[in-house]
Structures are given as C-alpha cells and as structure tokens.
Design a protein around this nucleic acid. Structure first.
Length: 463
RNA sequence: GUGGUUUUAGCUCAGUUGGUUAGAGCGCCUGAUUGUGGUUCAGGAGGUCGUGGGUUCGAGCCCCAUAUUCCACCCCA
C-alpha cells in the first residue's frame, strides 16, 4: 500500500493529554454550573437525517452543513432524465440523506418531540458535544468544535432568561474571566423597529449598519443606510436608535419613546426589562455584565424573543457564547406551541481565550505515582507481584515493560513526572530491602516491602 | 463562498541577484557513568524544502495548479 502523508482534515485538531486536561477543566466547570441550576445531561447522535437539519439555520447556515454521502451506488437510483435537470443544490437530498449536526439546539428540539411522553415540562437539559460546520477556518473558528448548551422547553417565564445570564456570569467568572459582556436583545424589539420604519426587509441591513457605528462613525452609518435605500426622513426617525447609548435604563427609555407606536416593540422592551428585573432580584452583582444591544441580530432563524451573545474584552475573539428564545422550534417536528430558550458556550473559543490569558490552573493530573524498574527476568517476576500489590492499595503504578538500561527507565520516569521509582535488582532481591528513589530530591533509601507499602500509601497521591 | 497570507529537520525558525554538499537553537539517540533521571561535556542521526507540473545549463528561491495555515469579508461558538 502506498504511504500516505499523515495530515488532519481542514479545521480539525488532535487533543494531547495536557490539552485534554484543560478542555475537561472547562467542560467540568460549565457542567457544574448547569447542574447547579437544575439542568440534566443528554446526548444525541453525531449525525441526523438531513431533513431534520435543513431550513433551520437560514440560507447561509444550510450551506455550512456537512452532508454525508449515501452508501452504495446512489447514482444509479437517479434516472437519466432527472439527472440532466439537476444542479448541485437539488441533487443533494438525493445523494445525501444524513448530515453531521450543526448545533445542539435543533437536535434537542427533535429529541423533545420524540420523547415528549417521557419528559415533564418544563424540561431543562444540558448537552456537551461536538458540532460541525463546513466553514472556512480562522482564529477561533474550527470545522469541528464543542458546544456546551443548556436549554429549557415548556416555560415562557423570563426567569429562565435571567437565570441563563447568571449561568454565563457564574461559569465564565469561575473560569477566571473578568472583563466580559453578556449582550441582550429581543427579536420583538427588532420587529418593532421594522414596524416603525415600515421596511421590515431592510431590518437586517439596518442592524448591520448600526453595528458599525464604532468603526465608521455616525456619518458612515447614515451613508451606508442611505445606500441601502433609507430616505432622509426615515434616517431622521432612526436617529435616536442609531445613536442609542448610555446605561441599559437610558437605552430602554429612549426605545420606549421611539417605539411607542409599535405594540410589538413595546412587548420587546417589556421583556428585556423583565429579564433585567429578575436578574437583579437573583443577584444584583450580575447586572454590570449585561448590556442591552439592539445591533445584536444573530443569524439563527428560529429565535423569536430574547437573544444573547457573550464577548470577552480581554482578548480579540468572536463571541464565546450565544443563545435565545425560540417559540416554535418543535412545531417543525409536529409539536406546536412549545416555547424554548437556551444558551451555548463555545468551549474551543473559551479554551483559546484562557490559554492566551494564561488562566488555566497548574496541571493537576495525577500521573503514575510509582515506577518499578525492570532489570532482568528473575527480578521481573518479583516485581510483578509487587506491582499488583501497589495497585491493589490504590497506588497508580507501572513496571517498565522491558529490561532496559536504568538510565532509560529513569529518563522515562522523569519525563512522565513519576515521583517514585522502586529499584528491584539482584542486590534488592537477595537482601529483601528494596530501594526507593524520590525523583524530586534525588534521595533514595532502602526499606522492606511491607514498610514500602505503608510509606507509599501514606505519602503517594492515590489516583 | 470572495480576497490576501503561510508552508524548509520532531518543534521554533534562518536561507543573499537563481549557482558546489540546505543551516541554527531546542528536542531526540549514543557515550563520558555495564545500577541512577533532571545539570555539564563529547559525538551522532534526522530534510522527496507542502504536493504536482513548468521555465532554466542549474530552482528552497521564478511561473502555473492544488492542498494547508493564518488574516480580512460573509457568517458564526
């Protein structure tokens, strides 16, 4: 067989022991907070029926779904006439029936519908699994990455939203992040803005343009909006929205005034106020992290109410979390009238941020505690029983698997940071006194096997 | 998907206008030490220069294609 140069698929990574330890640190921290707020873990398959996923993420999102080619001779199942009329888009459902999951929310909606008789509402679940996107990789953007999602379905209370803000605040603070902002917006408020300008189709263009205020300034924003088709009068009407600033309370007061003719807009403002009120009652310390931001649109099609996004100000990185409320995601799977709201942590981005800020705790992984040396066949037999006795006493131990030079065995212990090495050679065998070497100090002493056990049980770290 | 960028030893990187045998540091292996690691000293191995074409007497260097990395859009975690 021809040799193949080893390489990773674009946008994927291996995780070595140290990286896994750090990744698990992130996962465990987030999990602990999820559990504390009453969420239970589930998992769903890596791939779903393509139908389950398509049409949920918008046009751009659909393009980024990794499709799985059907098995077998799928071409022969398409008639020649039909084949001639096909283009790459319309052929996809014919040759790919499955696809890798794009996020955890849609599979969760599917799960809820399929398990509706087993679950009691409100159902609070969390899920930590990889998702895949056929995007072009970049800093903080991978084609395979882990999301940590918490969602609750069957409760329209805005307390859920407020609790999610606290989950964000608590988890990120536990991870050592200090300067981050949880952005809060509401689709109803955006709809209200669309109401008053009477051009709902330009809503997206508008939020995108307003979002650039820092970069291109008020004049630039207005130019861009004019280019998109806004009249001078409309721009005047939008002025207070474009220049919206100040505290959350200030912003909401301005919006209330501007959107007073829009029922939908008022509803959006009320919802934001309610979320903030709940958050304050739960923990007023969380309030400074919350920023009402009307430019937060979020592409995901299914959001209908609150929208969240989390960014850190400590390093340059896209959002490290996002979420929102979806009123009818399960409706697409035949269970209408069930509202849900959820958030997601981008574990891989959080990893990159923590690494850059040097916020990972010192390695705490328990490695092997004792290495038993291997001199030759006769000593190996004795060493084997000693080895297993150590293990039965809960001490992580290993025997060097072949009789090698002591130098080599010690180098191995050194590199693996094994704190104790037990020498069993001819000398030890005949005297019955084993030599134990403490690698950190280099000192060594002789003791009988029984004394050695009690010594190690008392001093070595169990695993 | 659009535009740009990167790729040379296990790792991080030098490499002149296109000119003999492509270098360094770290790491690795061997020895100084046949029962002693982390320090030191001596020696050694390791490269189809991302891949495939092309130009040239001659290509790591120039041209084309392709993969990959990172960056800016788009979008997103």
């Amino acid at each position: 067989m021809a040799q193949i140069k080893p390489s990773l698929a674009k946008g994927t990574r291996d995780f070595s022991p140290l990286e896994m330890e750090r990744r698990n640190y992130i996962f465990n921290t987030i999990k602990d907070v999820f559990r504390k707020y009453g969420y239970q873990e589930i998992q769903t398959p890596s791939f779903e029926n393509l139908q389950t996923l398509t049409g949920k993420y918008g046009e751009e999102g659909d393009k980024l779904i990794f499709k799985i080619l059907n098995s077998g001779d799928f071409i022969s199942k398409i008639s020649a006439e039909k084949f001639a009329t096909l283009h790459s888009n319309s052929i996809t459902p014919l040759i790919a029936e499955k696809a890798l999951r794009y996020d955890l929310t849609v599979p969760f909606a599917r799960y809820v519908v399929m398990h509706q008789n087993e679950i009691t509402l409100p159902f609070k679940r969390f899920q930590i699994q990889p998702v895949w996107r056929a995007d072009r990789p970049q800093r903080g953007r991978y084609r395979e990455f882990y999301q940590c999602d918490a969602d609750v379905v069957g409760s329209e209370s805005l307390l859920n939203e407020a609790e999610f803000i606290l989950v964000y605040q608590e988890a990120l603070s536990s991870l050592g992040l200090k300067d981050f902002v949880i952005k809060l917006n509401n689709r109803k408020l955006l709809a209200g803005i669309a109401d008053i300008i009477g051009k709902p189709e330009l809503l997206i263009d508008m939020t995108v343009a307003i979002d650039k205020l820092d970069k291109i300034g008020l004049v630039g924003v207005k130019q861009e909006l004019a280019a998109k088709g806004f009249s001078t009068e409309e721009l005047a009407m939008l002025d207070p929205i474009i220049t919206l600033s100040g505290s959350n309370v200030d912003k909401l007061a301005t919006l209330k005034e501007v959107l007073k003719s829009s029922e939908m807009g008022q509803k959006g403002i009320e919802e934001i106020e309610m979320v903030l009120a709940y958050a304050q009652k739960l923990d007023a310390n969380a309030l400074p992290y919350i920023e009402v931001d009307i430019t937060l649109a979020r592409g995901l099609n299914y959001y209908t109410g609150s929208i969240f996004e989390v960014k850190t100000n400590e390093v340059s990185m896209g959002s490290i979390g996002g979420g929102g409320r979806y009123d009818d995601l399960t409706g697409m799977f035949g269970l209408p009238g069930l509202t849900g709201v959820g958030i997601s942590f981008g574990a891989d981005r959080i990893y990159d941020v923590l690494l850059e800020l040097d916020l990972f705790p010192e390695s705490t992984t328990k490695t092997t505690q004792v290495l038993v040396t291997n001199f030759d066949q006769s000593t190996e037999d004795y060493a084997l029983s000693l080895l297993q006795t150590l293990r039965k006493n809960g001490i992580a131990s290993e025997l060097y698997p072949v009789a090698a030079k002591l130098k080599k065995q010690l180098t191995y212990a050194d590199q693996k940071k094994i704190p104790y090495v037990i020498f069993i050679g001819a000398e030890e065998l005949s005297s019955g006194m084993l030599t134990i070497k403490k690698m950190i100090t280099g000192e060594q002493e002789k003791m009988a096997a029984d004394d050695l056990f009690s010594y190690l049980i008392n001093t070595a770290d169990p695993n």
